[in-house]
Write a protein that binds this DNA or RNA. Sequence first.
DNA 1: CTTTACTGCGACATCAGTGTTGCAGTTATC
DNA 2: GATAACTGCAACACTGATGTCGCAGTAAAG
Lengths: 156, 156
Amino acid sequence: MAAIAAAAGVDRTTLHRRFANREALLRAVFQAKLDSAERVLDEARLTEAPVPVALHRYVEGIVPVSREWPLDTRRMMETDPEASARREAQSARLSAFIQRACDVGYLGPGTDPAWARVVLDALVDSVAHRFPEMDPPRAADLVVDTYLRGFGPSDG
Amino acid sequence: MAAIAAAAGVDRTTLHRRFANREALLRAVFQAKLDSAERVLDEARLTEAPVPVALHRYVEGIVPVSREWPLDTRRMMETDPEASARREAQSARLSAFIQRACDVGYLGPGTDPAWARVVLDALVDSVAHRFPEMDPPRAADLVVDTYLRGFGPSDG
DNA sequence: CTTTACTGCGACATCAGTGTTGCAGTTATC
DNA sequence: GATAACTGCAACACTGATGTCGCAGTAAAG
């Protein structure tokens, strides 16, 4: 709480006036991230936009969210079942999109959707935190390009 | 310390007989991971084996290390300058290998070595922890394939 | 000018985690 | 059988983080 207050530039007492305790503060932060992530999923139109468009919009939107809320929402599991369920629902939407991308042939035949999903998360997280100065549209370009083509020479 | 002791199946007192304090235990664990990682780097022969062979050997070797020591050695930064320097040296070896892979054309022209390095780390970490039952040779196959080809259909 | 709203500060109480100690029990060695 | 080595257990002291409280100061509103 002291570290969070210092980072926010306020006194610990002020934090406690807004949040009853540390758990309440964490819950509020998780909710804020879930809100932002949900907005990105909605705006990406994962189920109706063309797959390439939806993918790019999703990545471009989620990179700033990941940067603003650099916390792993999976850690909410045991403390807030409601938030956990909400996170699971959002994750399911993304996994369904990956499946759709496979179904329409956007991802190659033989692609394991589970692995494709994990890799997308990893690439987003990496670009967001290891290249913090890269702006979201360019970060999305990089992630999508790497995601589809890898690093091998073209026309291998 | 209580959680570590419980996970190890021993009493806290036994931990304290071996390690003066929590910091000493952490240092020992970091050293063990650095030792294992160094062995993998040595055996991969990153500077003399053919690039595809070296890459596969490295990934196949580092996946079990990452599983056995699931801790981020970057967190040693401020507590143990010696271990931090050792970690930096190992990281430099891997980055030099990525550069070599670019130089010989194994990675496509225009590849950003820094990004290629970050993505390799991310893929290894993902396969190690999100697919814990996958054996190392097969995990290495998957990582290298994804790394080079991505998920787009072949012959795009 | 008074009141309201808000904040920072310092002091305090509580608690969880770490580190220490003494003792009893177990196993292996001599 | 005695000794050494090792361990688990419980109790204790200490420390840092959290949460609470009272008070003084500041700014905005009436």
